[in-house]
Design a protein around this nucleic acid. Structure first.
Lengths: 151, 151
DNA sequence: ATCAATTGAATTGCACACAATTTATCTTGA
DNA sequence: TCAAGATAAATTGTGTGCAATTCAATTGAT
């Protein structure tokens, strides 16, 4: 490595570490709200997708579809979804047409939980302090990075 | 929640999810290099701190100091450091002066491993494709977000 | 039609993260 | 000085992430 690189942490390392640290910090920030809902952050993300799906798409998503959305595989999702099922929020059922697939649906309680999610201002308190333009910029930069990394 | 927010995922949710997804994507990107080194990403971060410490600071960092640097607690670090010790890369020793502290040092192999880390271009291949200015911008935005979240 | 290849979930095993508790040690103040 | 509080690691328990494997169901090429 060049001496210039090795003087300290190189730029890529700094960005990667800060990404990792910021991701965990955000999840910590959501914790109080999520505790009130009785969900973990990944479980909350799964519920978000199911709430959205309910509203827009016809039919129910499969584990695979959810996995593509969240970029998580069945090794992570299967136990997570079983916990949501245990909580009485989600229904998992094998498709009749193709018995390899498992379709995901919301129970009454799962649907009702959506109403318990507080408005943005109370979700990640400090996010409200961040300028909206700044957030949009950050989102776009993350998008470009994600796009590059997915190859 | 307002209808405008609920039309889709609100901005904060998008940013938080993308942060979470990008962090995991970056770690995936590092995987081939880390497999060659025989390290996981968090283990690599710990080694980076120890390599840097060696070069700049006098004395050895404690588990606490490492934890503050990486924003990780002993519940995560103790088993991770024991694995690095098993690999023969790190030495853990109770301080004589204060027996509550555990000081961390590098073994010969631990020091030598630094030479095995490939240059930036081969670390996260696609990072080289990203404009340096873009990376600096991203780092600064993550810094500001981290600063806001740490309160 | 059939069998090899593919696919979707589930399972297994390992390594984080982190809250909560425990243990040992140190510090401090009456 | 010595008991109360603070501190540093370790431990315990739960829930991810993800690679690798397994298993059942489906598809496709001959």
């Amino acid at each position: 490595m060049s001496p210039a690189e090795e003087a300290g942490l190189a730029l890529d390392q700094q960005v990667c570490f800060k990404l990792y640290a910021a991701s965990r910090a955000v999840i910590r920030g959501y914790k109080p709200m999520l505790d009130a809902l009785g969900l973990t952050y990944p479980q909350y993300l799964a519920m978000m997708v199911l709430w959205e799906w309910q509203a827009s798409d016809p039919g129910q998503p499969t584990v695979k579809a959810l996995g593509q959305r969240l970029m998580l595989d069945s090794g992570t999702l299967t136990p997570l979804l079983k916990r949501l099922e245990q909580l009485g929020l989600v229904r998992r059922q094998r498709a009749v047409r193709d018995e390899r697939e498992v379709h995901l649906g919301l129970t009454e309680a799962g649907l009702a939980l959506r109403g318990q999610v507080p408005p943005v201002q109370q979700r990640l308190h400090c996010m409200a302090d961040v300028d909206a333009g700044e957030l949009i910029e950050l989102r776009e930069r993350l998008d470009r990075l994600l796009h590059l990394l997915d190859r």
